[in-house]
Design a binder for these strands. Sequence first.
DNA 1: CAGTGGTCTAGACCACTGG
DNA 2: CAGTGGTCTAGACCACTGC
Lengths: 239, 239
Amino acid sequence: MFSPLYQQIKALITRALQEGEWKPGDLIPSEAELASRFGVSQGTVRKAIDELAAENLLIRRQGRGTFVSTHHEAQVKFRFLRLVPEAEAVAQGLRMEREFLECHRVRAGADVVRALRIRAGDMVLEIRRILRIAGEPVVYEDIYLPAAPFRGLTAERLERYRGPLYAMFESEFGTRMVRAEEKIRAVNASAQEAELLRVPVGQALLSVERLAFSYGDQPVELRRGLYSTAHHYYRNELS
Amino acid sequence: MFSPLYQQIKALITRALQEGEWKPGDLIPSEAELASRFGVSQGTVRKAIDELAAENLLIRRQGRGTFVSTHHEAQVKFRFLRLVPEAEAVAQGLRMEREFLECHRVRAGADVVRALRIRAGDMVLEIRRILRIAGEPVVYEDIYLPAAPFRGLTAERLERYRGPLYAMFESEFGTRMVRAEEKIRAVNASAQEAELLRVPVGQALLSVERLAFSYGDQPVELRRGLYSTAHHYYRNELS
DNA sequence: CAGTGGTCTAGACCACTGG
DNA sequence: CAGTGGTCTAGACCACTGC
């Protein structure tokens, strides 16, 4: 089993991130410091950091240093929300409102158990919310989180928090979402869904099922979203 | 205006690809050869090739050399088709059939003119086709190509060709698709669409509008697809 | 100005491929 | 075996940031 040095360094840095040695937003030691700490050359540390930066775990800033990536930065906020307004001109003045409909503990269903890799019968938090853009309801989401790491998360706290959910999870529960997989389908709105999103019954909606992972590829959130795509679309880049 | 050496090398290599010095599937010169040709060190060439490989323009094969990427390789076939069967077990035995409904020259509409950056009034090829997986119609597509570079493309030739469309464009018309942008919405099937995809009128379908680019970020294909997501879903990775 | 990441070089050695 | 890309090193210098 051969493993390049820089991969081992990468694993060491990842573990340090996982264990919270450096918190999101923090400045990590310089390449030279890390090189002497790990007993390798700067070039080797550099290659490890390059990959971590490509995976969005770290952010390099020339002249300043390398920082732990965070969901709090303006540019990276809503990194996972691919919904874009149809009229680009409006994109600027979009103010997004969130309304939390529910937040309670429930016993995990079989699909949630499988997705989050928890034990059958474990409790999960279920959050339902609506996102409105310029007053118009655009997204309805049903979110499942393992109850243990998110103990103390209440509707009231959700309402109070300013900023993206993932920023809150990161600073208040120490769980940082690193990557996600989405399964996208088209579905016809049920009577209930239609009322929530204020569209006709049967209206075609985007169904977006997201599984989000933290460090070490651990799944920590299952999310089922319904997007109204009358004035917005889901943007994707293929390469 | 400062530009790193390796970026200039990257541009030189990209231009060579664009001008057809090395064709898709070809082995390009070794790093050492390119280094001496461009008068830089191997490390600099290496970094340029690294980025081109990350962008899927080149493929590195240890011990063999670096090759120009192509749509013909088994692993990269259908790289741009993100539709995945619901039942993973079935994924193996999927045989995909294509039926070309139309292929004719038309004057480009305003939206096609804008997307493909051609002149108002220019002619384009319009292709309509259906993809069936295991006999079931899953995708209906309406494809627009600038007429000039695709002169001689007929329904008969489309029918005859074995393999992905982009593989055909590459080997028969010298146009290689490099990346694409997709706008995804949910729409209700019209009577005509419903008949083509054999679903009820009003059935929710994924609308996928793709703009595909060749070397140098030149748009060369606009494609409007309707995906039936009863037994398939659109898979996406967020990071 | 000192300190950071970013570029570039030259050279050594390793891992993999094909003949 | 020769030739390729892959790793690792050490050192020089550049570009950017903040003080």
